[in-house]
Simulated assay, not measured.
Amino acid sequence: MGESPRLVATDLDGTLVRQDRSLSPRTAGVLARIAARGTVVVLVTGRPVRWLSQVYDQLHEPLPAVCANGAVVYDPDADRILRADPLAPELLAEVTRRLRAEVPGAVFAVEVADGRELRHDAEWPTLWDAGDPTIRVLSTPEEVASVPAVKLLVRAGKRDPDTFVRIVAAAIEGLAEATHSSYSGLVEISAAGVTKAAGLAWFCEQRGIAPAEVVAFGDMPNDVPMLTWAGNAVAVANAHPAVREIANDVTLSNDEDGVAAYLEKLFDLDS
Score class of each variant (00 low, 15 high):
4 S>T: 13
5 P>A: 09
7 L>T: 01
9 A>R: 04
10 T>C: 11
16 L>S: 03
19 Q>E: 15
21 R>A: 14
24 S>G: 07
26 R>T: 08
37 R>W: 04
37 R>S: 11
40 V>Q: 13
50 R>H: 05
50 R>W: 01
50 R>P: 12
50 R>S: 07
53 S>E: 15
55 V>D: 02
60 H>L: 05
68 A>H: 00
69 N>P: 11
77 D>V: 13
77 D>E: 09
87 L>R: 08
91 L>Q: 13
96 T>A: 06
98 R>A: 05
98 R>G: 01
102 E>F: 00
108 F>C: 05
109 A>E: 09
114 D>G: 00
120 H>E: 10
121 D>W: 00
125 P>N: 11
127 L>S: 11
132 D>Q: 14
150 V>R: 04
153 L>C: 07
155 R>C: 08
157 G>F: 06
160 D>K: 05
161 P>I: 05
162 D>Q: 12
164 F>G: 01
165 V>W: 00
166 R>G: 02
166 R>N: 00
167 I>K: 10
171 A>L: 10
171 A>R: 07
172 I>K: 06
176 A>E: 06
178 A>H: 03
185 G>L: 04
190 S>L: 06
201 A>Q: 10
203 F>W: 11
208 G>E: 03
210 A>P: 02
211 P>W: 11
214 V>T: 02
217 F>G: 01
218 G>Y: 01
220 M>I: 01
221 P>C: 06
234 V>Y: 02
244 R>E: 10
252 L>N: 01
252 L>R: 12
256 E>R: 13
256 E>W: 03
259 V>Q: 09
259 V>L: 07
269 L>S: 09
270 D>Q: 14
271 S>I: 09
271 S>D: 15
